[in-house]
Each structure stands twice: as structure tokens, then as C-alpha cells.
Amino acid sequence: MPTVELLFSAQPEHVRTARLVAAAVARRAGVDEAALDEVRLAVGEACSRAVGLHRSNGVEAPVRVMLNEDEKKFSIEVADEVPGNASGGSPDAGADDAADDEGEMGLAVISGLVDDVEVIEGAAGGVIRMSWPTPAV
């Protein structure tokens, strides 16, 4: 079970809440103070992307954020429920080009910010997994 799990309806106004919760848990986990801005931004980007995907695909399910405090690292997973978004996008691409572009820009920011990041696309949806080192206890 994750240390903290957050489910929120795919509305832009809740992304800020996710950022605040993630930063608070990261701070508690011992993530370096200087990296907290990165955590905040990366989680915001991942959640914005998930919200955009849910909305443009008419998915009513909530976006899921899992915050895990391990011995040596603090990891975050942001999961959407839009299947197979790896590349090429959905067949109805075109109408939502702008949203797709923003999602891609978000991914670019995440990969620029976070050293340890993994994007997993599955049949049930996508997951962005990121982690930051924490001091050994």
C-alpha cells in the first residue's frame, strides 16, 4: 500500500491540491528541500497530462496519485485510465491536438526535471513513475 494515495476527479482545479499533497509528503520523506520545487512541478505536469487525457477521451474515472516513501527513495506514480497513449495518440486525433501538444510538453518538462522517470503505457491506462533520493535513515 502506498504511503499516501490520492484520487481526484479529472478537473484542472484539483491539480494544485495534488501538487501540495505531493510536496508535503515528499518533505516529510526527507527529499532535499531544493528538490521540492521539482517534485511540485513534475507532479503538476503528470497530473495535468492525466486530466487532459481523461477529459479529451471522456473518461469519468478519477486520476490516481500514489506517493511512496521507501528506504532510499521517494517515488510518485500518476496513473490515468486512458489506454495506449504511448505515441500516435488516439484515432480521433486532430480535434485535441492542442491538448496532446500540451501533454507532450508536460512530458518534456518532466524528463528534463527528473533523473529517474519512467512512462508506462498499458491496456488499462498509463502510469508516470518518478523518484527522488532520500537520505538513508
Binding site: 501538487r19 511540485r40 512541478l41 503538476g44 505536469e45 495535468s48 501538444d101 500540451e102 510538453m105 508536460g106 518534456a108 518538462v109
Partner: peptide
Amino acid sequence: DFLDSTGLG
């Protein structure tokens, strides 16, 4: 205080 890629866009 905060800017993300949506803001950049």
C-alpha cells in the same frame, strides 16, 4: 510562484 507547461504554452 508557480509556472508549468500549460503556462509556457
